[in-house]
Design a binder for these strands. Structure first.
Lengths: 155, 155
DNA sequence: GTGGATGCAAAGTGTTTGCATGGAC
DNA sequence: GTCCATGCAAACACTTTGCATCCAC
């Protein structure tokens, strides 16, 4: 990992942003929150709470804290939940946050490897679906599943 | 519900099909399996195991049996799992089965109402994603989420 | 100093499994 | 009669919650 002792001293606008968000929500900026958001920012991929816990310095915090932090970040719009259909919660940096962008995933059904996909559905499909059924604030979730090159060889 | 006492007597080709599938898989055709598949066929929508148990005649079978039956049916390709992101398993009749067809869903984030959507992604998107990453047997999952007309009024 | 964040353990929720019994073939 | 399906209860995996303590502000 990287030295966390220096992080405080540095002025970093993107950090300012999230700290402001947290404080506006009457929340507090703690070391584990900083480090969790840092991981999500640095590595753009879906993280399970377990993954995050494992990537933090040993004994940095409890799994329950990771869950609570992620839930809070989600409410604040800092992170978004990713659902890959295996019944585990995953999170990544929100697409409108620095470091985030709209994308989908391609998951190997064998080894669970996850690739990021930048292709997306046609812009009008979402609005058409919304219009046809009178729904508002319509978003979509699109995930691809298949067998990755390595697992094709293995089988 | 409908009289289940007569069902056995009737010759029904679509029933023949699934029964053959089950038997080929060294499985047995039982009353609860018949009734579960019947429900899935008659009502094209995502069912949770609980939903199914509730729709069966009282004391027909155990929740564990519903799970085991659905798992088996999924292996046989009779039903398919639907994931709407709330961490509950849902199943519908498989799209290549009589009574099934390819479709997606539009879910209300407030009241969880589920609508069926026949729009789909462009045919070439899936194959392009597969080709670009060397994946095989690529399928996709596309779900829409929004606020339904009724919940818009409520809020 | 105050109120939110945390650790720990316990409770929850949905799902799966072990084992003896029942039923399809 | 054989073997799979079932009921029941226990086990499971992941997530949430209660409560005393800690720490950001």
């Amino acid at each position: 990992m990287k030295s966390s002792s220096k992080r405080r001293a540095r002025v970093d606008s993107s950090h300012q942003d999230w700290k402001a968000s947290v404080r506006q929500g009457a929340g507090r900026v703690t070391r584990s929150r900083e480090e969790i958001l840092e991981l999500l920012r640095q590595h753009q991929r879906p993280w399970t709470p377990q993954d995050l816990l494992g990537a933090l310095p040993p004994r940095r915090c409890d799994l329950a804290t990771v869950y609570r932090t992620l839930t809070r970040f989600e409410e604040l719009g800092l992170v978004q939940r990713v659902d890959l259909g295996d019944g585990r919660a995953r999170f990544e940096i929100a697409e409108n946050q620095p470091g985030g962008h709209h994308h989908h995933h391609l998951v190997c059904r064998d080894c669970s490897q996850i690739l990021e996909i930048d292709d997306c559905i046609p812009a009008d499909l979402e609005s058409r679906v919304a219009r046809q059924h009178g729904f508002r604030n319509v978003t979509h979730r699109l995930e691809f599943f298949g067998i990755c090159p390595r697992c094709q060889r293995g089988t």
